[in-house]
Structures are given as structure tokens and as C-alpha cells.
Write a protein that binds this DNA or RNA. Structure first.
Length: 124
DNA sequence: GGGCTGACCTACT
DNA sequence: CAGTAGGCCAGCC
């Protein structure tokens, strides 16, 4: 039999797949934070790892990486980078609104979407 | 094996 | 609301 060290590697790859799946489930016009994706993937403390998983995502999978932002409601790229512009453009095309460079997570985040489904727009 | 890095998070000031 | 500090996890040198 093989040693247990190889199992760990498989486990990591398996987790990456979970991340890609979770991100792919994000509906258009909505966003999730890295922390939420990490939690939904079964590793609440691995928010940092999510960014790396997204970078390693295969092109053919069509993972909507742009729908993942940081907990401040902002894009986690440097503002002078092309990635920042690209992500902002993609989100705005889906109807996401930037206010002072930030996205209102109560409105476009997962929690906000659920709240509107349950309560409507009254408690805004 | 030790230390640095990163598309991060939370808590505190 | 903005800035700082400590913590977390895995990949890379």
C-alpha cells in the first residue's frame, strides 16, 4: 500500500474542484466574497486559497471568477491593473453597481439576495 | 526544512 | 469610516 502523503494532494485538488463548483453556482448579477466561497467549500479559514484556486481554474470550465470579491465589497486587484478594469467591466454588464468603487454586499451579495426573496425590498 | 508571498478575513483603535 | 495588527493555508524558493 502507499503512504498517506499522497492522499493529501488528492484532497487539495478535490477542494479546488469544490471552489470552482461553488463559484459557478453564483447567479449573474450577484457576488460572493472569498470568505463565503471558502466557507461554502468546506474550509472557512482558507479565504486566501480561493484566489489561488480561481487562478488555477481551467479556461474550458467557464468559471465566473469576476463574481468573487473581498469582504470590503471591493475588487482585490490593484486599481492600475488591467485585471481590475476587466472585472469591474464584467460585473457592471451584469447589472452590479459600484458606489465609490465599492459594491453593496447587502444588495448584490448572497445574503442580500436571500433577504430580498424572504422579505422583499421593505427593509432596505 | 525555514521563510516569504498572496485576487484574504476579523478585530481593534 | 480609515488604518493597523495578527491570524490562516498552501505553493514556491
Amino acid at each position: 500500500m502507499n503512504s498517506g502523503t499522497e492522499v493529501k494532494k488528492t484532497s487539495d485538488l478535490n477542494w479546488y474542484k469544490s471552489v470552482w463548483k461553488v463559484v459557478s453556482e453564483i447567479p449573474s448579477g450577484h457576488v460572493l466574497t472569498y470568505g463565503e466561497v471558502a466557507r461554502l467549500s468546506g474550509m472557512p479559514r482558507a479565504a486566501r486559497r480561493v484566489s489561488q484556486a480561481l487562478r488555477r481554474a481551467p479556461r474550458g470550465m467557464n468559471v465566473p471568477w469576476h463574481r468573487v470579491i473581498n469582504s470590503q465589497g471591493k475588487i482585490s486587484f490593484p486599481e492600475d491593473s488591467s485585471g481590475w478594469v476587466r472585472q469591474k467591466d464584467l460585473l457592471e454588464e451584469e447589472g452590479v453597481i459600484f458606489l465609490k468603487g465599492k459594491i453593496d454586499l447587502e444588495q448584490f451579495g448572497y445574503r442580500g439576495a436571500v433577504d430580498r426573496l424572504l422579505w422583499g425590498d421593505e427593509e432596505l
